[in-house]
Amino acid sequence: MKRPGPLLTLLAGLLLGVFLLSLNATSGAKNTSSSASPPPSSADTTKDTKESPAATQSPAPTKPTPSPSRTPVPNAGYAGRTDDGSSAVAVTLRDGRAIAYFCDGRNKESWLKGDVNDDGTMRLTGRDGSVLTGTLKEGKRIRGTVDIDGGRYAFTADRTKKPSGLYRATATVRGAQVDGGWIVLPDGRQVGVLTRDGEPSPAPRIDPETGAVTVDGQQLTALPATP
């Protein structure tokens, strides 16, 4: 029997070499794949999140500062004299409105009216151009001035209690139009002017309890003046 020749031996060596090369290539691919970096774990992600800066919080709203309380404007009457003692002033307040009367008890008088502000200030005006500017002090008195006939009269009017206050009567007496105004001061004194068809004169006394007054023989009733 004949032995294999050198050609067969060489062929067998070549086949073995190809097999070994193929095996090495497969092994190298597996090693390369396994050497890749692993993805970050959930623990690492949580750590990064915890280390990030905290979110900025909005500041708490500031509470508004309450406005200082004010003494409410009362419905009341006030009466007093001017600083020079020549005249009297009375003011009646009702629901934010005011009516005032200035008179010297002889021949000078003026009726004024207007609004009262929440802080107690007021500016009242008359048809004759007179102006009363005043301020209510803690509901107890009014301090101000009256500008009339080119003069200015400072006054203080204290809060009144009945029968003190401001009174008025209008009527026709013996064919004449009569309009009377009276200021009953806290001490009981009265100051008033009565006009007959526009002619002023000192007013007769009234009964402050009833308002009764006699004008030229005719009895009238003076009523509290309100805005």
Rank of each mutant, 00 (worst) to 15 (best):
G165K: 04
G144T: 05
D44R: 15
P64R: 14
T214L: 05
V178G: 00
R196P: 00
W182A: 01
G126Y: 09
L23F: 07
S22F: 11
R174C: 01
C103F: 01
V173A: 05
D187G: 10
P66T: 10
N107W: 08
G120E: 07
T170H: 05
D95E: 15
T71A: 11
G77E: 01
S69V: 11
D44V: 10
G188L: 04
A212H: 04
G151D: 08
V178Q: 00
K113R: 15
D147S: 14
A54I: 03
T82Q: 13
N75S: 13
G126D: 10
P64K: 14
S164N: 03
T160G: 03
G96K: 07
W111C: 03
L112A: 08
G181D: 02
D147K: 12
Q190L: 04
L194G: 01
Q219L: 06
L185Q: 15
G188R: 10
A76I: 09
G192F: 01
P39H: 12
Q177E: 15
Q219I: 02
D147E: 14
K30L: 12
A79K: 02
D187A: 08
T92E: 15
K108A: 12
P61Q: 14
D128L: 06
D187E: 13
D149A: 15
A36I: 08
M1A: 12
P61C: 12
S27K: 15
L8I: 07
V89S: 06
F19E: 07
